[in-house]
Design a protein around this nucleic acid. Sequence first.
DNA 1: CGGTGGATTCTGGTATACCACAAAAAATGG
DNA 2: CCATTTTTTGTGGTATACCAGAATCCACCG
Lengths: 228, 228
Amino acid sequence: MSSQLTIPTLQANVSLKEKTYEILKDAICKMNIYAPDAQLRLDERQLSEQLGISRTPLREALVRLEQEGLVNIIPRRGIFIVRKTKQEVVELIIVWAALEGMAARLATQHASDEDIASLRSMFPSFSAGDQPANIDEYSERNIEFHQTILKLGGCNLLVEMADQLFLHVRSIRTQTIGEADRATRSVKDHRQIIEAIEARDPELAERLVREHALDLAKHIDKNVTYLD
Amino acid sequence: MSSQLTIPTLQANVSLKEKTYEILKDAICKMNIYAPDAQLRLDERQLSEQLGISRTPLREALVRLEQEGLVNIIPRRGIFIVRKTKQEVVELIIVWAALEGMAARLATQHASDEDIASLRSMFPSFSAGDQPANIDEYSERNIEFHQTILKLGGCNLLVEMADQLFLHVRSIRTQTIGEADRATRSVKDHRQIIEAIEARDPELAERLVREHALDLAKHIDKNVTYLD
DNA sequence: CGGTGGATTCTGGTATACCACAAAAAATGG
DNA sequence: CCATTTTTTGTGGTATACCAGAATCCACCG
């Protein structure tokens, strides 16, 4: 037993507006905003009651969410969760492609061999190109894979901005990724990307990452129907 | 004289928080935050008095600025204008390179010939590669050039995100761009970029744009001393 | 019966008062 | 005189009250 007094970080030194922001962001990201019956309108007073806080910190949290594009505040009209159009989603992925492509390029130049190896160990069960057994698990691995590439680039801002974009695409991505032939193809793409980074080939790594992402954009543009 | 009643858009239908945000953003961007004697601290109450508004809309404007990274709000300590470190500036430019590179790529594929031609007409006075006479004018043209490439890509999000990044680099960029040999070299780079886009060569256009930007990053990393 | 106009209500916008924490200043003890 | 503690003061954080515009509802009139 420790002789030191362990302080349980009483009240967690974060402000209400901060906590509120996190809670709302999380809640918005987890809901399916594209469901036909989705409740997109937020009521300030009702929310403040539910959270047990006043409107002031709540509003500051909402302002942040608005700045991020998750929410739209229309003066004297209401606060609405933003539904991205298909066009906007495609643009999100284009930017994502640019960011991750750059990260892959940087990774070939700066990442250590061990860090690169971590990419490969990420797909232990189906590295041979088999169809992954569990779609949910695969989806998680997939996300992790891309985030790791971003990190390997060694540029924090790339990681942050990609995370930011990712917020807006998460629900769509998880829905799209599950489609049959896309998963096996994705595994193949990933293997090639890993090989290119291992070979320290900036051009190839960048191109493969970019094309992989843009391929998703194309796929969504063609096949997703629940976006306008 | 018009027979119609002209309404002067009374009160301009924007909220105080919106106006305040614009004013503060503008003020911060225009000041030289790297001057040794720069006043980086903002006082809420003093500002609200100066602006003639209460603290509430002011704070909401500040929250937005914080979200953008222009300002840092430290609970119970104060509100401070953010000084970017050299590392952060370099990362900003890396991301910029990724975005503009992607835009250039897209431009070779989707932009019309007329739009591409507008790039060339942007440098009427020194298109032959001469040293531009007026540094200030050149700096403006330079900025305009890069923003045009972003636009030619046809992806709005790329434009928006690059603009966002640009906010943080503006003061540095205008200071760096004036250095002697960089200007002539820059003109040469620009000409090559235009030619690559005209030739509809995505790989080359992307590479030239990227290298042009990354070259600036390297230059700043080596030569800028007023950043920590 | 349908449309119009006004009162009502509901929503976000703003102002203000008070709170909690932290830094600075002053008081106190060695 | 210096170190330490206490008090003061100043900052952002939060709660609350009130304001203004928009939407709705409903009575009234054609």
